[in-house]
């Protein structure tokens, strides 16, 4: 006992030194790595900035002076013709409804498909456990293909209009929601499923009655978040010819000065819609996740 304390005491200063030096070394190494990472990052940013600047039609610094020009033109013209603005908003309201409809239907269809795909690709729930990787890869690919690609190809086949955009967004939504749904479903309690199975329930019945009630609040919350994203996507797809507000925006832009009040009205509608649904779904989701029962 006393031996141990004695020997410990003897080697005390040495070990403190060793600890200190090794600590300092560690700190130094950490600093070096941190510094190197930061340097590489800074280098990448600068090099990337220069490359992007060189390959852009207009340079960054010249463009910076003109950033305000277009909004200023639009705003001043819209202000001059402010009396006509309500009429324009009424005129473009149907286009807005179309944009929202595209997003809503795509969310509903995509969520439905994503639900099925997620259940089929979750361990413990899958109908055919061997096919889990197949369904997972399917969802990966559905998520990876940008909506615009599917939309453009479908526009070529089906002609312009809301349906190509709807299908394109729905496919992407199914992939994205499927992944999130499956993560939620992994944590679901399997006991209700066993109980149902003991009564002879089929797989679909087991999922519908045993799993869905557990995960529904989370699923609805994710679907609402997706709906927000899809409104933006649907506006963008309109810009490449899929109808709705984006399409009107492109036309208004093509007219240029003189029709800036149209552009302003569309900007206003789009902005308002996005904020509105943002707030609405935020409130809804809060209620769902905190389990607030009305």
């Amino acid at each position: 006992m006393s031996d141990a304390t004695l020997s410990g005491h003897n080697s005390g200063p040495a070990s403190v030194d060793a600890i200190q030096s090794s600590y300092l070394q560690q700190v130094q190494r950490k600093r070096l790595y941190g510094g190197l990472t930061l340097m590489i990052f800074a280098l990448l940013m600068v090099a990337g900035f220069m490359t992007a600047d060189a390959r852009n039609a207009g340079g960054f610094w010249e463009g910076l002076h003109n950033v305000g020009d277009y909004p200023a033109d639009v705003l001043s013209e819209a202000w001059e013709k402010r009396a006509a603005l309500p009429a324009l908003i009424v005129k473009y309201f149907p286009a807005l409804v179309e944009t929202i409809n595209i997003a809503a239907v795509a969310t509903i269809l995509g969520a439905g498909l994503g639900l099925i795909l997620s259940l089929l690709s979750t361990r413990g729930l899958a109908r055919w456990p061997r096919l889990i990787p197949v369904f997972r890869r399917t969802m990966d690919i559905m998520r990876a293909i940008p909506e615009i690609v599917i939309a453009l190809v479908l526009i070529f086949v089906l002609g312009g209009g809301p349906v190509p955009a709807m299908i394109a967004i729905a496919i992407h939504t199914a992939g994205a929601l499927g992944k999130m749904f499956s993560e939620v479903a992994e944590n679901a309690d399997l006991k209700p499923l066993e109980g149902l199975a003991s009564t002879g329930a089929t797989w679909a019945q087991g999922m519908w009655l045993g799993i869905l009630p557990q995960v529904a609040p989370n699923y609805v919350s994710y679907a609402l978040l997706r709906f927000e994203i899809n409104i933006r996507a649907s506006a963008i797809l309109g810009f490449v010819g899929a109808g709705g507000l984006g399409y009107e925006l492109r036309n208004a832009m093509a007219w240029g000065p003189g029709r800036f009040d149209d552009a302003a009205a569309i900007f206003l509608l789009l902005f308002g819609t996005i904020i509105f649904f943002d707030q609405l779904s935020g409130r809804f989701r809060n209620q769902l996740t905190t389990g607030g029962q009305a």
């Binding site: 992007a52 390959r55 039609a57 207009g58 463009g63 950033v67 277009y70 810009f239 900007f267």
Partner: peptide
């Protein structure tokens, strides 16, 4: 979308 449209006016087409 709107940012893209507005910024494209100032900076022209390209990655920047």
């Amino acid at each position: 979308l709107i940012w893209t449209v507005v910024l494209a006016r100032a900076f022209g087409p390209g990655p920047m």
